[in-house]
Every structure is written in structure tokens, then in C-alpha cells.
Simulated scan of single mutants.
Amino acid sequence: MTRDILSDSAIDVLTLGIGGEIFAIEAADVREILDLVPITAVPGARSFVGGVVNVRGRIVPLADLRVQFGMAVTAPTPDTRIIVLELDLEGEPTPVGILADRVFEVTQIVPASLEAAPRIGIRWRPEFIRGIGMRGDDLLILPNLSQILH
């Protein structure tokens, strides 16, 4: 769905913990949140594709954002969740799952208040980030999922 980042209208976001960072995913893109289910490996898949999961008879690829952001890949915990999203990839609605170490809450952000990712001093590719903002004392990262998943 991905809205214009310069909008002054607040949007609802789901906040997630991934690799010690807090990410915000647009709530409108979230279809469901699952406990960890069996993951089937896919031979020859790109490094960030952790496999596929069966979601009510539909095969959904599972992306591990830790790989794309250069974070250590860790074993799942009881708090690990799969966030099933429906994203517009190449002009077509596509279900994608992402692994989250923890799901926090739904909150609101004003996209126009976000800043661009710094070009130096970060370990991530700047095009992977739509914006960075603050929520209280916490840094909130709004990822550019369409870039990350290509």
C-alpha cells in the first residue's frame, strides 16, 4: 500500500522488534500476525528468504529482514512472530511474511515528521529505509519493503 512519505496525515503503524531495533510497518499492509509455524526451506532462494510458510493453504515466502540489514541471525524465541503482509510488488498484490523478534503495538506516526536515513555511519543501505523518527526515546525505522524484497 505504501503511502506518500511527505503526507501530513497520521498513519497507523505496527511496531516490531527486529535485531534490537524498532521497525514500523504500515498497519494497512498487515493481514495477520502468527505465532511461529513450521518454515520450509527453499533451495536456491535469495539469502534473505528464510523459506516459505503455509497460511491457510496459501504458500507465503518468509523474509528475514535481519539479513538485509546486516544483523546477526538469531534463533526464534517464544516471542518470535510472523507478520503476514500484502504488498504491491511489481504492480501485483503479493503476500509476504516477515520475521519479528517481538510485536509491540499499533501506534500513529506522521510520515512528514520522519527524516531520511543518514548516508554515513549506518550499516544499512539507505534505500532500504523510507524514514527514521523518534517515539519517545526510541528510534523508529520505517523500512522500504518493496526495495528490501527485490
Score class of each variant (00 low, 15 high):
A45W: 02
L99T: 01
R66T: 01
I39K: 04
E26C: 11
L85N: 00
G44I: 10
D101G: 12
V96E: 03
P76C: 10
T94G: 08
R58C: 10
V52W: 01
P93W: 13
V42Q: 07
D88G: 14
G91C: 13
Q68F: 10
R81M: 01
I83S: 00
P78Y: 04
V60K: 03
E32W: 13
P61V: 04
T74N: 13
A27E: 07
V67H: 08
E92L: 14
D29A: 13
E90A: 15
D79V: 11
R46S: 15
V53K: 01
I83R: 00
E21D: 12
E86R: 10
I59W: 02
F23Q: 00
E32L: 14
N54F: 04
A45P: 03
F69P: 02
I39G: 00
P61F: 05
R56M: 06
M71R: 06
L34P: 06
T77M: 12
P61I: 02
V55C: 04
P78M: 14
V67L: 08
I98D: 00
V30D: 02
G57Q: 06
A27N: 08
F48T: 11
I59G: 09
I33S: 08
R58S: 15
F69K: 02
L85A: 06
E86L: 12
G97F: 03
E32D: 13
I22Y: 07
V53M: 06
P95M: 14
R102Q: 15
I98V: 09
R81H: 07
T77E: 14
A45T: 09
V60Q: 04
E90W: 13
D29S: 15
V53G: 05
R58I: 14
I82V: 07
